[in-house]
Design a protein around this nucleic acid. Structure first.
Lengths: 219, 219
DNA sequence: GGCCAATATAACCGCATGGTCAGACTTTGC
DNA sequence: GCAAAGTCTGACCATGCGGTTATATTGGCC
């Protein structure tokens, strides 16, 4: 590869990374190009050189985030076992939330504000994604493999509960009087959420190594 | 009452109302004192006269919001029926979310940012509230009236799912291809969420007038 | 009525911000 | 080697912001 193309790619990547951190920390309005530039170790004008303006940089960050989501549930078909699929989906999303809450928070702030820069994603991509996934769930229900529930609300519920641990991290940790999440938390939270939702859908939670229905994780 | 005291109270109230709307629309950083003043129909300097500065105004709004929350679950004791209590709590929160999403959104943005202006509320009030409510749930479990679940995570789950309809209103409506919530949505969503969570806790949902397990609300 | 405190508001200030620009420097293709 | 294209950056600008101040107006109270 060209040296030009190389540094171009490198710098853009560094800027995007820095921007994601800043936007995640301070939101769109609260983030300044200068902050991003400082974090990326570049002069401000250079950031503008690559991304023209703030909105453009922001939408680039937003796009990078949403492009890599919901993968887990994507491959599931009506032939798969609903309990397995949902359990796996829930746990994957919780792991994402705990390990990289920043991405979830940026997205959350965008939606709370009314998705001023990302409406197309909702209208075009996400709506169809939900409908598509809903048909799979409907098939499971039609075959009597799970209780009848509104599939769309079920998806909302899974999103809400799992992303809560990222978006409301401060509240969760403060209420639990913890400094930060630990590895075991991923399992414990996954157990709790998965158990309730699956049971709520009339599904038996798949067998797991440790059982953790009741005990809250206390280090 | 004094005419002075009266106008004072009136103006403060008008400013708070306007501020809540602006903060709900644009967040803390995105809201300007000028916007608030315009919406309240007062000159900017007058807003500053009453609230000294922007942070002060913001925390006043925040305080007004949180002070009026979680009432429903407050009065429940271990003697009550868990299914009734949880069902009622879930439905009340969903109704709040649908009817006044703004308050929820302001609070959500504050927490997502790490609660920079409202940490005390989390540490002092909310943590104890959760612990207190958790003991009630634990008693229900000890008496075998519901499945063993981590009470704290259950509370998080109820918060997350119910507030989702306020905070992510845009996403929910867009995915469902609706313009705005309608009265019947409150019931339908309430049915779905309550059913799954209660069943997930091993509880039988209390009898309701209409049954709406499956059918998605389509106008 | 007359004095004082409370209320109201226009004009102003300093500062940070998004974005521009001219020009220096570097790489590429020939 | 050299010109063209691409990259980099300090200096600059206009704007909008939070907050102050000086001054005018109003209402309470004797």
């Amino acid at each position: 590869m060209n040296k030009r193309q190389q540094t171009r790619k490198d710098n853009q990547q560094r800027i995007l990374q820095a921007a994601e951190e800043e936007f995640g920390l301070h939101g769109f309005k609260g983030t300044t190009i200068q902050n991003v530039a400082d974090r990326a170790g570049l002069p401000k004008a250079n950031v503008v050189y690559y991304f023209s303006n703030k909105v453009n940089l922001y939408t680039a960050v937003l796009g990078r985030i949403t492009r890599s989501w919901n993968d887990v549930f994507n491959r599931a078909t009506a032939e798969d076992d609903p309990a397995e699929v949902l359990d796996h989906f829930i746990r994957a999303k919780i792991e994402q939330s705990v390990l990289n809450p920043r991405a979830s928070r940026i997205f959350a702030m965008e939606i709370i504000q009314g998705a001023p820069h990302h409406k197309d994603y909702l209208r075009q991509y996400l709506r169809n994604w939900v409908r598509d996934r809903a048909t799979v769930i409907e098939q499971w229900i039609a075959e009597g493999r799970m209780h009848p529930v509104d599939p769309v609300q079920l998806i909302f519920m899974i999103w809400a509960t799992t992303q809560h641990y990222a978006d409301f991290e401060t509240q969760v940790l403060t209420v639990m009087n913890r400094g930060e999440y630990e590895a075991q938390d991923i399992d414990h939270i996954g157990d709790c959420v998965s158990t309730i939702i699956l049971r709520g859908c009339g599904l038996e939670p798949p067998a797991r190594s440790g059982q953790a229905d009741q005990a809250p994780a206390r280090p």
